[in-house]
Design a protein around this nucleic acid. Structure first.
Length: 815
RNA sequence: GCAGUCUUGGCGGAAUUGGCAUACGCGCUAGACUAAGGAUCUAGUCCGGGCUUACUGGGUGUGGGUUCAAGUCCCACAGACUGCACCA
């Protein structure tokens, strides 16, 4: 070890050397003026398309969470560029949305103005952190030349029969006055304002995403997503296989169709239940004797939010329909029909066959209403609860004796089809995508309602259908869109017949623009198509997409659906848009709670940039913990990262022309390997730890070869690029550090010639030996036996076994 | 209820995938430099015993198992988080 340079001198120099307030703006200007991070079209180089979820430009500005979300691919992209790739790392703004509109209403300012202000605020923040985005490709989903193509895709979907309009029970938010998709109303709460969602009958535009359910499932097998993300998408799509069965209704010429995953339990059916909204009730209202009671029950259900409906898991309620009964098609038995709110209109056919012996909900209901319970699968106790396990089929005629569920289901479906009373079928939990919103700040839906021709698409050449400028953005009465009040917009002529017609006044949901934005980055200024085909062939698919776990089901499934559709109609060149997906963990407040304005624990990234510098911020958000895990913010630890960067700057006092020692050379090669691999595996925390450890070793050595120092600078550059540019320039590096080559390691030089390994006796550590790498067992055992403590603990004992795992461990088993 | 992830010092977290548990950082303790330190540097820091040297016992949520060897694999239990949820 060499003694350290004089401390006083170091102190003075260091503060001068690491003047982040001077360094950071300097290099940001160099990068921007030189368009250093521009993606090049028509390059011969291999490409890398790194995508981060573009932000919603809220008035609050950025959050450290945004910084963490972008930092991963920022580092990967910078590394790729240094490795010689042509990199596309773009950013844009997903700017349509309710918060802006609500703020506009509150402040009586046009959402356009607010959006522009917020975008410039975000842009300023992003630039101050030094992200290597290609600023020539910024997109904004609310701009005409962008949403023109969002509308274009909608029209293509419409032309291909994937858009339909229906009166439906929808999730409706009385506070936002808007129809919500199931995705936007989870838990019965509005995703935007968190108030209770109610059920309302409305005109709804649907996109037939269910038609793509199987393709979305199959596509998952071709992409590199983490297992938990795949699983979430699989659960969301919720495919189940089973059968549709028709039950005839006594006295009327009507079949009641149900869906079941266990058709083999048909002999155990003792009643049926239909959803309160089931159309059959109104159809036969005149034959139902207790219509009053049924109406009363329906009213009660409508009052309940979906959340309340799903909360009452235990107590089953319902009303027996007094007017018709059903017939079990396999045994001719007459069974009662109930309405009950534990059956949902939105899944299957809105009607079920109830098998109380083998479904807990049906069991609870049967107990409540005193209905027979028949055992058809052996193994449970019908007096206690429903038996949902496997077992031998009983009381089931031709199914008796079957013990395998697969076989009995197959046999039953065969019978159903033979007798013409049912068929095999599949169901999805995922429902069609409710696509309209009664709001101003969104893409107008390009449809004209003609009294003669019906719903007609706006001609493609008339796109964009511009969002008109209005004075008043408040939703109209009964949740009508603000656009409904603008006569000049509403009244038009039918594109087909030319006669007077009216425009659709609803707008698209926020998910529309984000469903295809990644394509526009490839060719943001194109006026002829949404993206040039050659450019697409070069850049697509997105190589790596990072974002939040909260977008894994909604945004990602919607955009995969659109992309699959565009692929089917020949617009894009790949079936799947994203080859690889990763997700960052949350940054929690210093108190360990989720950051929120109301808790007052939000960290503003610009405060950190001001106090510690952008490089410290960037390094800390990646160093703070496992990238995928939620980690609390720690201001002290932030300071630790700054200390590290100061020590890096301080190394310029130790530069020498002397060659590094063999040991130090090994350390460098090890670090290059470690950092390179860790970045690929998103283990940024250990990559930074490895850099810190190397700095510690260099400080211990007291000197560092100048070229080695430049190697170090290049490794650190993706994390702390401003400082590294400065040190690169200071040490006479050619060009920009950001464009320098990524260091390459020599595998042979990553290993020491002699290594220290542990020695155990009976599995207990007794010491270590230093031996040549890959040395023989004899040599290692002999060295191990020389250790006094090993001698002592084996003394007088018989050595039964000597285990030597080369370069790992010696274990001596003695008795 | 179903599915998935997880539980390691005072704290955030490492552990090349079965081979020296606690790397790196924070904090803390002592010291140095200071007029001063919430700056910087040095040494120490899993818990306990020990002539504080040598050495030694215990230790990765709990209990068991496999193995020469378990934070890592298997079984059971407890707890935390995330997503879905009367999905027929």
């Amino acid at each position: 070890m060499i003694s350290r340079p004089g401390q006083g001198r170091m102190k003075a120099r260091k503060s001068m050397r690491y003047d982040y307030k001077k360094i950071e703006p300097k290099w940001q200007k160099v990068w921007e003026d030189g368009k250093v991070f521009r993606a090049v079209d028509g390059s011969d180089k291999p490409k890398f398309y790194g995508l981060v979820e573009f932000p919603y430009p809220s008035g609050a500005g950025m959050h450290v969470g945004h910084i963490k979300a972008y930092s991963s691919l920022e580092v990967v992209s910078r590394k790729r560029r240094m490795e010689g790739y042509n990199v596309l790392f773009p950013i844009g703004f997903d700017a349509y949305g309710l918060p802006t509109e609500n703020y506009a209403i509150k402040t009586n300012t046009h959402p356009r103005i607010i959006t522009d202000q917020n975008i410039s605020k975000f842009t300023n923040q992003l630039k101050k952190v030094g992200f290597a985005f290609d600023w020539d490709r910024v997109i904004d989903t609310t701009e005409e030349d962008f949403y023109r193509w969002t509308q274009w895709i909608f029209l293509k979907l419409f032309d291909h029969g994937l858009v339909y309009r229906d009166k439906a029970w929808v999730n409706y938010c009385p506070s936002c006055k808007v129809v919500l998709s199931n995705e936007d109303s989870q838990g019965g709460k509005c995703d935007i304002c968190h108030s209770d969602v109610i059920q309302k009958s409305k005109d709804v535009w649907y996109l037939k995403i269910t038609e793509y359910a199987d393709k979305l499932l199959e596509g998952l097998e071709t992409v590199d997503y983490p297992e938990n993300i795949k699983q979430q998408q699989i659960n969301w799509i919720g495919k189940s296989t089973g059968a549709f069965v028709n039950f005839s209704i006594k006295g009327v010429d009507e079949k009641l169709e149900i869906y079941t995953t266990r058709p083999d339990t048909l002999f155990g059916v003792t009643f049926m239940v239909i959803a309160p909204e089931h159309p059959m009730i109104d159809k036969y209202a005149d034959r139902i004797a207790n219509m009053d009671a049924i109406e009363a029950y329906r009213k009660e259900c409508a009052k309940k939010t979906e959340f309340e409906r799903t909360q009452l898991v235990k107590d089953k309620t319902g009303v027996k329909i007094d007017g018709f009964t059903a017939v079990n098609p396999v045994n001719g038995k007459e069974i009662p029909v109930f309405i009950a709110d534990y059956v949902m209109m939105g899944y299957g056919t809105g009607a079920i066959m109830a098998v109380p012996g083998h479904d807990q909900r049906d069991y609870d209901f049967a107990k409540e209403f005193g209905i027979d319970i028949i055992e058809v699968i052996k193994g449970g106790n019908m007096d206690e609860c429903a038996y949902t396990g496997d077992g031998e089929m009983v009381n089931s005629d031709y199914l008796n004796g079957y013990t395998n569920k697969k076989d009995s289901i197959a046999r039953m479906i065969e019978e159903l089809e033979k007798q013409g009373i049912g068929r095999a079928g599949v169901q999805y939990k995922m429902k069609d995508w409710a696509f309209n919103r009664q709001r101003y700040w969104g893409e107008p839906i390009p449809i004209v309602h003609c009294p003669h021709c019906g719903d007609v698409g706006v001609p493609y050449e008339e796109l964009p259908l511009k969002l008109p400028k209005v004075e008043n953005f408040e939703p109209g009465q009964d949740g009508e869109s603000p656009l409904a009040g603008i006569e000049s917009f509403v009244n038009c002529s039918c594109p087909k017949c030319g006669r007077p017609a009216k425009r659709e006044t609803d707008t698209m949901p926020q998910w529309a623009g984000s469903s295809w934005y990644y394509l526009r980055y490839i060719d943001p200024k194109n006026t002829e198509s949404l993206c040039d085909r050659d450019k697409m062939n070069y850049w697509m698919p997105v190589d790596w997409y990072n974002g939040g776990m909260e977008h894994v089901t909604r945004h990602m499934i919607y955009s995969r659906f659109w992309h699959h559709f565009l692929y089917d109609i020949g617009v894009v060149n790949t079936a799947e848009p994203y080859a690889k997906r990763s997700a960052q963990g949350l940054i929690l407040g210093p108190d360990g709670d989720k950051m929120s304005k109301s808790k007052g624990n939000v960290i503003d990234p610009l405060d950190i940039v001001e106090e510690y510098g952008a490089d410290t911020l960037r390094t800390y958000v990646l160093f703070m913990g496992d990238y995928g895990a939620a980690t609390p913010w720690n201001d002290r630890a932030t300071k630790g990262c700054k200390r590290f960067l100061e020590r890096v700057a301080g190394m310029t006092d130790m530069l020498t022309e002397d060659k590094a020692s063999p040991a130090m050379e090994t350390r460098f090669h090890q670090t290059i390997k470690k950092v390179s691999q860790d970045i690929e595996n998103m283990k940024f925390n250990t990559a930074i730890a490895a850099l810190m450890a190397l700095v510690n070793d260099i400080y211990d050595a007291g000197a560092v070869n100048k070229e080695d120092f430049q190697t170090f600078i290049r490794l650190l550059c993706p994390f702390a690029p401003h400082l590294c540019e400065e040190l690169w320039e200071m040490t006479g590096g050619e060009g920009l550090c950001s464009l320098a080559s990524w260091p390459i390691y020599d595998e042979a030089k990553t290993v020491e010639s002699t290594i220290e390994i542990g020695v155990q006796v009976n599995g207990k550590m007794r010491g270590t030996i230093t031996i040549p790498r890959d040395c023989s067992k004899e040599e290692a055992i002999a060295a191990a036996m020389e250790i006094p403590t090993v001698k002592k603990s084996t003394d007088g004992k018989k050595i039964i076994k000597e285990i030597y795992v080369p370069n790992k461990i010696v274990n001596i088993v003695a008795k």
